[in-house]
Amino acid sequence: MKKGKLLNSEISYVISKMGHTDSLTIGDCGLPIPDGVQRIDLAVIKGIPKFIPVLQAILEEQLVEKVILAEEIKENNSELNKEIIEILKQEERKSDRLINVEYIPHEYLKQETAKSKAVIRTGEYKPYANIILVSGVTFN
């Protein structure tokens, strides 16, 4: 049995195949998933699973050098934005690596998901609960 915390085999498989600058998207239940991008649907009912625990589990497995968030999260879901930033700061302290945070308009974020190796759909039911995680490298 797998020793790590992340139990979802599809997510583990996607992360294991990722290289430097490849991306993985975590989205709320309303984020459109482009044709041709692998969909990993975790949504069970409205609100389950929540966005933050999924993000935290993935950050246990994936080394991230950059994240992309919708500019609109700052005004329309500021509490979630603050929570994400705090989690990223914790990751920086654990790994002794900086994580660049980029904000772009939500429409562009939706377009950027087409470049992701996969989009993980959560049951989150709050606006702009979407993030693109860009992989770093484990050697430096």
Rank of each mutant, 00 (worst) to 15 (best):
P49A: 05
G19R: 12
T138R: 14
K82H: 09
E91W: 00
D28K: 04
Q111Y: 01
K82Q: 13
D28T: 11
I58S: 07
A57K: 10
D96T: 03
E112Q: 12
V101T: 14
G27F: 00
G123S: 07
E92W: 07
L133K: 08
Q62C: 09
L88N: 11
K3F: 08
V101M: 05
I120S: 01
R93Q: 13
L55M: 14
V134H: 08
I120K: 04
E60Q: 10
I48D: 12
E75K: 14
H106T: 07
T21W: 04
I33R: 07
Q62T: 01
V54K: 03
K50I: 01
E112G: 03
R121F: 00
P49T: 02
S78D: 10
I48M: 12
G123V: 09
L59R: 04
P49R: 06
D41W: 08
G30V: 11
Q90K: 13
I99L: 06
K110I: 15
P53K: 08
I84S: 01
I33T: 15
R93G: 04
T138M: 13
N81D: 15
E75L: 12
N130Y: 03
R39H: 14
D22L: 01
R39K: 15
S135V: 01
V54W: 04
I104Y: 00
L133I: 10
I68Y: 09
V101R: 05
D96P: 03
V64F: 05
R93M: 12
Q90L: 10
N140P: 06
H106K: 07
T113G: 00
V134E: 15
G123T: 07
N100Y: 07
P32I: 09
I68C: 05
K2P: 15
L88G: 01
I33A: 00
T25S: 14
D35Y: 10
R121W: 06
T138Q: 12
E91D: 03
Y103T: 01
V119M: 04
Q56G: 03
K117H: 03
L6K: 05
K117A: 15
E10R: 14
I84P: 04
L6Y: 09
F139T: 11
Q38P: 00
F139C: 04
V14W: 01
G27Q: 06
G30E: 09
R93P: 01
E92L: 01
Q111D: 05
R121N: 02
K115H: 12
M1H: 13
N140S: 13
P49I: 06
K66W: 02
V67L: 03
A43G: 14
R97I: 02
S116F: 03
A43H: 08
L55V: 09
